[in-house]
Design a protein around this nucleic acid. Structure first.
Length: 291
DNA sequence: CCACAGGACGGCT
DNA sequence: AGCCGTCCTGTG
């Protein structure tokens, strides 16, 4: 779908449409990217760290070879998907969505590692983004593995095998509070093979949610975030406080519970519900809708 | 000092 | 099935 070339030590995605790192990295789906300069971003994904350069047209992956690009970055950035088509479908006859998309036009849904997404969104509960980022960074620093990129303090997100072996005492250093026990138990459950990935991917939505909610500490909201943000399925509409507010304010005209909003979204957005949620969430939070 | 933040659990009705 | 007290920590 998107054309890319190798130039010296870099991979360049040419004339990359429907992307803006601010929109994509700050719409609440991921926590390990940071802007390091005007057009530069730094991030860690799986066993790789990368510097991205974005000039509004081309996306440059610095010091990246074809193998790593195809193995990690290509799927991560969802490069096979046509977001232009998704956006035009979503905003047809929907002025609210049209405005939200106009505002966050550069959002892409990242296909993140399943285990990392589970642990990250366990940590996210009852927390704001700055603290989530802080705890995750601490988690990586203490229990992740060094990445061979010249800088010793760049660490992977720790595996569930590793986390399952960390004692409660040790885990306290990341200051996750009462979420400690969720992290440990869920990590152990994942290691033991308790979660059937086939059901997550191929079951109906209700089955997928029930399967993932077997994990201790995972309720409706975290379950939906994991299904959507690890690229397992896209007909998912996670409802947090911001989405609740934006739906009340701009679609329903009144407060509604999770179940009602979920049904409304399934009816209105169908298979594209997950994309719709991200545009609406980013719009609501940046514009402080309902505050 | 208190309220609340991008929730979920467990016990109670 | 729904309600509610509780859970850690940081911020305002």
């Amino acid at each position: 779908m998107n054309k890319w070339i190798r130039e010296k030590n870099n991979i360049i995605v040419k004339d990359f449409k429907d992307f803006d790192p601010v929109h994509t990295f700050e719409c609440g789906q991921c926590f390990r990217w940071k802007q390091i300069d005007n057009n530069f971003w730094f991030g860690v994904v799986k066993d790789l760290a990368v510097i991205l350069e974005w000039d509004g047209k081309d996306l440059v992956f610095h010091d990246t070879n074809e193998d790593d690009f195809l193995r990690v970055w290509y799927p991560y950035f969802d490069l096979d998907r046509d977001y232009g088509e998704i956006k035009s479908k979503l905003q047809k006859d929907d002025p609210v969505m049209k405005e939200a998309i106009n505002f966050g036009h550069g959002i892409r849904l990242l296909r993140q590692d399943f285990q990392e997404t589970v642990i990250s969104f366990l940590i996210s509960q009852n927390n704001g983004i700055p603290r989530i980022r802080k705890i995750i960074e601490s988690l990586a620093q203490h229990f992740g593995e060094s990445i061979d990129c010249g800088k010793p303090d760049i660490k992977t997100f720790p595996s569930c095998e590793r986390l399952a072996g960390v004692s409660s005492e040790e885990l306290k250093v990341i200051r996750a509070g009462y979420r400690d026990k969720y992290i440990q138990k869920a990590a152990k459950q994942i290691c033991s093979g308790e979660i059937d990935m086939n059901i997550l991917k191929n079951g109906d939505i209700t089955q997928s949610r029930a399967e993932i909610k077997k994990l201790f500490g995972v309720g409706d909201k975290v379950a939906d975030c994991v299904l959507l943000f690890s690229g397992i399925r896209y007909d998912i509409f996670p409802v947090d406080r911001w989405v609740k507010r934006v739906m009340a304010e701009l679609y329903l005209g009144r407060e509604a519970d999770y179940e009602e909003i979920r049904n409304f979204a399934a009816e209105k957005f169908g298979d594209l519900a997950g994309f719709a949620q991200q545009y609406l969430f980013y719009y609501a939070r940046e514009k402080k809708i309902g505050m």
